[in-house]
Design a binder for these strands. Structure first.
Lengths: 212, 212
DNA sequence: GTCTATAAAATGATAGAC
DNA sequence: GTCTATCATTTTATAGAC
């Protein structure tokens, strides 16, 4: 058959692997299934990847970049912080509802990565990336509205990511759109309370930042 | 060897399977690995279970009951609702830190169940069970303190479960105890705001009780 | 470089001796 | 009822023809 650059084959196989994982879970991602999904003979798989684990590591790395591209097409603007956060969460929620299997695959890949000594670090980086994305969105939103965060923005970002993961699992399990809406409302309202106008000096009447 | 009642073998295999999943993930839960962990020959596996899927279904059912026993040993009392919720979440967090692989296994089993047409319903029941446990804890806490929930307690329970799942994943990924503490503080404070004293008549300025 | 054919290992499931 | 030995399939990985 035609000659295809190795880099191109690698990309095609990684993307095929994501589709296979989305369709049938990590367990369904056999070398044969992936090669077939990519329309290649099995041997092409091992020509560009050392092993199945090699590809899986590349897959985890790949999906992190994908998530960024999907979630941050452009910054959200609005006049109310709660509204802005809500809109951002809804954008993710729409993504989730449009392609549930993909988000399910993302979570499964995180768990898969955590099981391997080598890939566990990839999972950590994946989440650091999420935190960073959330923090940057929160910072930009607050700045735009002339607000400052009451707590370190990294901390607020973490909470937002946790809420997102939680609502994702919840919705994946029962597909309850009303409940999804409830969680988004709660998250937006609760997280927005961490921002204040900078005019008002920071009160440290309740310094509950750390109880460890 | 000695005769062992079938029911006993089934229990032993299910518990062995949970240990294997905790140790190496769902992918590591082969029939051989499970039988070996239970100290039985492979044939005993198929003597009491029709197939691997048969056991996995029983495993998912089993872990739901386990989670209940672990989380609800006795109701938590206190003088402040936020404190009570925080204490409840800390009890779960301690469980998580004491046996991280077990909670990781729980999440993986949920994803595994969602992949199978038959078991997807088990996952739904699993979460309905979680919601119900959370709702009952929230009701009892509020009642104890003479408070009523501003929103349907089922809705608040869902949010609490989502927060729990989110903080679990977050901690499993980076094992950051300080971040865990932050999320618990946030959750307790934010969720507690949904409760009010019943003396004050229910205002229906924002009647958002049900959007189903 | 590409692909068919096959080796090597792992896995689900069972037969049949005891 | 229990367990060893084995089958049948699947899967990872590679050899070797083109």
């Amino acid at each position: 058959m035609a000659h295809i650059p190795a880099a191109e084959r690698r990309d095609a196989l990684v993307q095929a692997a994501l589709r296979v994982v989305a369709e049938g879970g990590v367990g369904a991602a056999t070398t044969r299934a992936i090669a077939a999904e990519a329309g290649m003979p099995l041997a092409s798989f091992h020509y560009v990847f050392d092993s199945r684990d090699d590809l899986m590591a590349h897959l985890v790395t790949f999906v992190v970049g994908q998530e960024e591209a999907a979630i941050l097409p452009e910054p959200i603007v609005g006049s109310d912080l709660q509204e802005v956060i809500s809109a951002g969460l809804w954008r993710y929620a729409d993504l989730l509802r449009a392609d549930p299997l993909r988000e399910q695959a993302m979570l499964e890949l995180t768990h898969y990565a955590l099981r391997s000594a080598d890939m566990a670090d990839l999972a950590r980086r994946q989440y650091e990336h999420y935190f960073s994305l959330a923090a940057s969105a929160l910072t930009s939103a607050a700045t735009h509205l002339g607000l400052v965060w009451d707590r370190p923005v990294d901390e607020v970002a973490r909470i937002l990511v946790a809420l997102t993961d939680g609502m994702t699992i919840s919705w994946l399990v029962d597909r309850d759109d009303a409940a999804l809406s409830d969680i988004i409302s709660f998250a937006a309202e609760s997280v927005a309370r961490f921002a204040r106008t900078p005019e008002r000096a920071h009160r440290d009447e309740d310094d509950v930042t750390r109880t460890t």
